[in-house]
């Protein structure tokens, strides 16, 4: 709509210019143009874990919907991300007004900044999700954080918990973990766990009593696992 309106204005001003009435040009052109309001946010994520790289972080801007709910089965998009780190379907979530992905996994102790730009501020929420890759199906993130009242240059910070997608049993077995600890299988459409999203119980590891685990004490984690700062920049 806005595009076609400005086209009309361009045509109008062009025809006015053609009349040679150059004195009035500026007024005629600038007055009716509706500026497109743009709201911009940065999402900075810090990986707080010892040895759990975070898969490329997916962030979305939206006004409704949730990426997951405790007690409900994981969506297919969440399962794909939580088991294998593939965030493509999460980024394409139907209720997302804007989306952004980190280019690469986020190593422990490092941080990354993503940007989101929207044309709506009313009821605006930001969500993000990422896999702890040296696990079967652990993920972390934030769900529908309201940013509609943030002023320009104002920030909010949160820490995030480790969740379990509930779609793959936490066997920690060789061949089942996609991260560098195993380089095993990521996504598998079979659901052999409780099929509800819950908090993650943590990894056990071969050093703490799970003989068949490919993980070591290095891969253990505790809450919180990430720190997130959302800043409105425009």
């Amino acid at each position: 709509m806005r595009f076609s309106k400005s086209l009309i204005i361009l045509v109008l001003s062009a025809s006015l210019a053609a009349c040679g009435d150059s004195d009035n040009d500026e007024v005629e052109v600038t007055d009716p143009v509706m500026p497109v309001m743009s709201y911009e946010f940065t999402v900075q994520v810090t990986n707080l874990t010892n040895a759990q790289p975070l898969s490329p972080i997916a962030a979305i801007a939206h006004s409704e919907g949730m990426l997951w709910q405790i007690g409900e089965p994981a969506s297919a998009a969440l399962e794909l991300m939580a088991e294998g780190g593939d965030n493509s379907e999460l980024l394409a979530t139907d209720f997302a007004m804007a989306s952004s992905s980190a280019e690469s996994p986020l190593p422990p102790g490092e941080q990354v900044t993503l940007m989101l730009s929207t044309e709506q501020l009313d009821s605006l929420k930001i969500s993000l999700a990422t896999m702890l890759v040296n696990t079967n199906d652990a993920f972390t993130g934030l769900n529908a954080i309201d940013v509609s009242s943030l002023a320009v240059n104002e920030s909010l910070s949160r820490t995030s918990f480790a969740y379990d997608a509930g779609t793959e049993a936490n066997s920690e077995a060789q061949g089942t973990i996609p991260g560098p600890a195993d380089s095993g299988e990521g996504y598998n459409e079979m659901r052999d766990d409780i099929n509800r999203v819950a908090m993650h119980p943590g990894v056990v590891s071969q050093d703490d009593g799970l003989t068949n685990s490919v993980l070591t004490s290095q891969h253990k984690f505790d809450n919180p696992v990430a720190r997130i700062t959302i800043t409105r920049t425009q």
């Binding site: 918990f161 480790a162 049993a169 936490n170 066997s171 920690e172 908090m199 993650h200 119980p201 943590g202 056990v204 703490d208 009593g209 799970l210 003989t211 068949n212 505790d222 809450n223």
Partner: peptide, 20 residues
């Protein structure tokens, strides 16, 4: 990880937790 013996009757992949 031994449901028939071991020290504990609990399953270390199921019955652990992290707060909260």
């Amino acid at each position: 990880d031994d449901l028939e013996a071991g020290m504990s009757d609990l399953d270390n992949t199921v019955h652990r937790w992290l707060n909260p």
